[in-house]
Structure formats: structure tokens, C-alpha cells
């Protein structure tokens, strides 16, 4: 019923019109054509019915309540996370042990001021007081390290140049361990990967 040569609206234009996805100028053209063309108007009506029918598909009932399972999963710490937490805790404990043992040695080797040393010693006394068991272990390791150090200094003058750096090496190892422990404890969400990993599918 369009006048003369005016072509009918194509299906895509009708759909975009119903979706509200056409520009104002195109919209005007579509509207004026629809006002004059019963064929296109009835095609538009069919489409509108289809849209309504799609959106009116009723929800299917669930056959089981999902709530208990969801709550159960939320209350149970995730296995992976729990394991990570253990690894992190062990690592932090290990780092702390090294720290307690090595701090005085490292401090003296780095020739920090006497004041610092006394502070470290005080801290050590406190720590040892609360962790009595460490004393013996620490002392033995310290003795062993001192013995090793001495034999190195005596027997291999060349190696001692390299060995001058060992306190630094220990310090960095401890820092590395602690940093790693802290990172492992960090909430997972902060390292989330994007959702868009697999996109090619939708084209």
C-alpha cells in the first residue's frame, strides 16, 4: 500500500525500530511509512507479538531449593584457599624463625650502631622470653654459623670477599619469604582475571 515507488521497510529496520535502536531521522521515515502502509504495519504487529511471546515465556519451576547448597559452600572455606593459607602461614613462621636467628648476626655483620644492636638484643630477649624453645635452636645455629664463618675466613681468603655479602643475602631471602607469604594471603579478588577470555565464539 506504499505510494508509488517507496520500497517497503525491510525486516531489519522494523526490528531495530521495535528495539528502539534507530536514529531520529530514520525513525521519522519508518513512522511515516508505517502511517501509509498497512502491509508493513501488520508485519510490525507480527514482530511485536513475537517479542511479547518471547518475553512472556513463563519461568520453569526449580526442582530443588538451591539455598542450602549455596549457604553450605559459603560457610565452608574453599579448599584451595585454605591450603594457600596454610602455605602462607608456614612460610611466615619460617621467615620469622630465620629472622629471630639471623637478626643479631646480620646486624653485627652489617655493623649497625651499638644503639640499634642493644634494641635488637632487647627485642631478642622479649622474643626469647615468649618463645623459650627458640633459644637453644638459635644458639646452636648461631654457633654453627659462627664456626662456618670463622673457618671460611681462615681457610679461604678469596671466598671471604664474596661472603662479605651474606648478611644481605639472608636479609633479602627473609624479605622475599615474607613478601611472598603476604601475597599468598592476599584476597583472591584482587587478582581476578577478566571475564572476556573466550570471545571468538559469538560472532
Amino acid at each position: 500500500m506504499s505510494e508509488g515507488s517507496t520500497p517497503h521497510l525491510d525486516e531489519e529496520a522494523l526490528q531495530a525500530f521495535l528495539d528502539g535502536e534507530i536514529g531520529p531521522r530514520e525513525r521519522e521515515l519508518v513512522e511515516s511509512h508505517l502511517a501509509a502502509c498497512g502491509d508493513c504495519l501488520s508485519r510490525l504487529d507480527d514482530l511485536r507479538h513475537l517479542f511479547r511471546a518471547i518475553e512472556a515465556i513463563p519461568d520453569l519451576p526449580l526442582e530443588r531449593d538451591l539455598t542450602p547448597a549455596v549457604l553450605h559452600a559459603l560457610r565452608r572455606p574453599r579448599a584451595g584457599a585454605a591450603r594457600l593459607r596454610w602455605v602462607a602461614a608456614l612460610q611466615l613462621a619460617f621467615a620469622a624463625a630465620i629472622l629471630i636467628t639471623a637478626v643479631p648476626v646480620v646486624a653485627s655483620a652489617l655493623e649497625v650502631s651499638a644503639r640499634m644492636e642493644s634494641w635488637v638484643a632487647a627485642a631478642q630477649v622479649v622474643l626469647q622470653g615468649s618463645l623459650g624453645g627458640w633459644v637453644a635452636w638459635r644458639a646452636s645455629v648461631e654457633t654453627a654459623l659462627a664456626g662456618l664463618w670463622q673457618s671460611m675466613t681462615k681457610l679461604r681468603p678469596a671466598a671471604t670477599a664474596v661472603m662479605d655479602f651474606w648478611p644481605w643475602i639472608v636479609a633479602f631471602a627473609v624479605l622475599g619469604l615474607m613478601a611472598n607469604g603476604i601475597l599468598l594471603r592476599w584476597p583472591r579478588g584482587s587478582m581476578r582475571r577478566p571475564d572476556s577470555a573466550h570471545r571468538g565464539r559469538w560472532s
Binding site: 519451576p61 526449580l62 531449593d65 538451591l66 539455598t67 549457604l71
Partner: peptide, 14 residues
Amino acid sequence: FGELVRRYQTSVFN
């Protein structure tokens, strides 16, 4: 959150 699950589970399932 359990109450939210109860309210929306059917529509989410659908």
C-alpha cells in the same frame, strides 16, 4: 544472602 538466594533462585535458574 540465603534469603536473596531464596527470592531469586528461580529466575536465575531460568
